[in-house]
């Protein structure tokens, strides 16, 4: 099967602190992969390295068979763990910005998602409550027809209704050509939508498997497997 994203021997340190230690990962098209681990495990560093915001000390990242370059960003939709929009923006400004900057941005889809997620395009970004801000960022991310979606804690600190809507949006944005890498420590909340999991701690990849294998061969839920892996660390 073709792979969408390949990561080989990714290593990164900040000063004397090792953030990633020889990480290998592979994500196939049509799959939602969960990158899980406690705070400080290195999840955000992996996503930022794929976005080329952080430069690796060693290792390679291949997207759809091509080593990463600035054009690769056209195929990746990134949702960071904080508000990265300009503070002066209204939601409609953010939509216009994305439309201008990303050729794969679908304005019709953004309207549909605004309706579905109950987002007011006139609202000021800086005054949005955290749940609504997260919905807005998800709307912008999934209005793009990207090959790879990188989501950093997309459901952190938000109410159950918003969480449900965000998970539905993620699922509706999937097709057989694209894939999602979702970094979170909220294992229970995302368990039902994951196809693959990667468990990360202190920059090391502890385990990886498909959700199907975990359930059928190991006879465990992802949460149970997560606890088993991290208890043995």
């Amino acid at each position: 099967m073709n792979t969408n994203l390949n990561i080989f021997g990714l290593t990164k340190s900040f000063g004397s602190q090792l953030a990633l230690d020889d990480v290998h990962m592979e994500i196939q098209p049509g799959r939602i992969a969960g990158l899980m681990g406690p705070n400080g495990a290195g999840k955000t560093t992996i996503l930022k390295t794929i976005m080329q915001i952080v430069k690796p000390d060693a290792g390679n990242i291949i997207l759809n068979g091509i080593p990463l370059n600035h054009n690769s960003r056209q195929e990746i939709a990134y949702l960071p763990d904080h508000n990265h929009l300009f503070k002066w923006m209204r939601v409609r400004d953010a939509i216009a910005y994305y439309r201008d900057m990303f050729v794969d941005f679908d304005s019709e889809k953004s309207k549909e998602l605004c309706d579905f997620l109950k987002i007011d395009p006139q609202a000021h970004v800086r005054t949005l409550p955290s749940g609504m801000l997260e919905r807005t960022l998800i709307m912008l991310t999934f209005s793009r027809k990207a090959k790879l979606y990188l989501l950093d804690e997309p459901i952190g600190g938000i109410d159950p209704l918003a969480r449900q809507k965000i998970l539905q949006t993620i699922l509706s944005g999937m097709n057989e050509d694209n894939s999602v890498l979702l970094a979170t420590h909220l294992v229970n909340e995302v368990e039902t939508i994951l196809d693959d999991v990667f468990f990360l701690d202190k920059g090391c990849l502890l385990a990886s498997d498909s959700a199907e294998n975990i359930r059928e061969q190991r006879g465990k839920s992802i949460m149970e497997y997560y606890l088993e892996v991290f208890e043995n660390v």
């Binding site: 080329q52 600035h70 990265h84 503070k87 900057m101």
Partner: peptide, 15 residues
């Protein structure tokens, strides 16, 4: 140094 740096650096635009 702004929060928007991640948005700007994730644009498909050459440095």
């Amino acid at each position: 140094e702004n929060d928007s740096v991640e948005l700007e650096l994730s644009l498909p635009v050459s440095s």
